[in-house]
Nucleic acid binder design. Structure first.
Lengths: 217, 217
DNA sequence: CGGTTAATTGAACGCATTCAACACGAGTGG
DNA sequence: CCACTCGTGTTGAATGCGTTCAATTAACCG
């Protein structure tokens, strides 16, 4: 199984080829139906998951029921590589998806301890930066800016054509620290200003890149 | 130079002894005056910094002047171990402080690549979890809850006596994604309910641990 | 003791939330 | 083909939490 891996994409967890190769070789493919759990929050982290098809969402539920979405993972992204022994965020299949799953130990045995550590560290680096950026987003940006930068990030993954959003408004809201209503309002607002255009509720196209980038800054 | 390292403290970056030892042995002590820069955001990450005395703050400034504080680091904590090649947050001396500084390369040469990777990975794990927790705090908690959990975290570092807060209200606000006024109001509110008590503006004592913990949950 | 910065308090505003109603789309069955 | 339903998304009106702006007080330091 040879994986088509989008090398041009710099936003997501960037795994080393050695790690990808090992997962590719040693792992087993698994399917998950929409909204099914891949691992639970506070589970032990003993696997690596490579997204082969579909989209994965990580999230954390507070004890009083509020939810925070950690991030979204697309084809070619590695999921579940938190450096700690436990998954502090759970992972679910946002869409039906196919993952290549492998035990961490198996990878260690195959390519060696040192190699794996280096690879994880490299891959973790991008996770770390995304997390840092998320903190700034949640701590210091308005609803309008949050939604704008979310759309921009999505659009930058495939800058050519119309972008389709696999996640619903609730997932967006829980990622951005907002409510669905606010997200919806901001979307119509941005569309009203012809910055983006929505031919369907889950599909959009950027019209004014400059305007979006200006809000993200 | 032998460092007195508070082993009881589980909240901060937990560096492996090998890494600490190497920094201790190979590093040079440096002093930083209050508010002086240790490294700038987007600097290359080529050093490790061990806090020997004082408190360090990491922060990020958006281009339009808003500031987000990343975290605070105390005696025994490691600063600057982001896994990526660049520091996405800068670091400043919150108080006058003394750091043990060492080139990453020197540590690598001394204890070996593999050893360092493993140590960084372990230390990074705690940073990672703090970051994840910060995301939940900023995304899904009210001002009252944010302030409460901040006080609780501080108090848990030295649970016996009165706690002193090295940071000012602005630093708290920028860490919690709030304004100084809101922070101040929440503090007086919590004091009004006899949950905490402030004998001085930068010193407090927890009166009702249960109440604090209930808001953090 | 002034002089300066940090912190608190007050009042008005505004952004995001809440609660509620409505619109839309997809799927199902008559 | 239409009617019906359910889930999802949008819109409206009212509320409220946190901010903003301004004034006051408290702490710090010569």
């Amino acid at each position: 199984m040879t994986l088509a891996y989008p090398l041009s994409d710099a936003r997501t967890a960037r795994p080393s080829n050695a790690l990808i190769d090992a997962i590719d070789r040693l792992g087993t493919p698994m399917r998950f139906a929409r909204d099914h759990q891949i691992y639970a929050q506070d589970d032990e982290a003993e696997m690596f998951y490579l997204v082969v098809r579909g989209v994965v969402r990580t999230s954390k539920l507070t004890c009083d029921g509020r939810r925070q979405v950690g991030d979204f993972y697309y084809e070619g992204d590695l999921v579940g590589l938190e450096p700690g022994p436990l998954h502090r965020f759970g992972a679910e299949a946002l869409t039906e998806c196919e993952l290549q799953v492998v035990r961490r130990k198996a990878v260690r045995a195959y390519v060696g301890e040192a190699e794996v550590d280096r690879a994880i560290l490299a891959a973790t680096a991008h996770e770390f930066e995304r997390l840092q950026e998320h903190v700034v987003l949640l701590g210091r940006r308005s609803a309008r800016e949050r939604v704008a930068s979310f759309l921009l990030a999505l659009a930058q993954r495939e800058p050519n054509d119309a972008v389709d959003m696999p996640m619903g408004r609730q997932d967006m809201a829980d990622y951005l620290g907002l409510t669905i209503e606010t997200v919806s309002r901001m979307l119509t607002q941005l569309q009203g200003e012809a910055i983006v255009e929505f031919p369907a509720t889950r599909r959009f196209q950027v019209r004014k890149w400059g305007a979006l980038e200006a809000m993200t800054a």
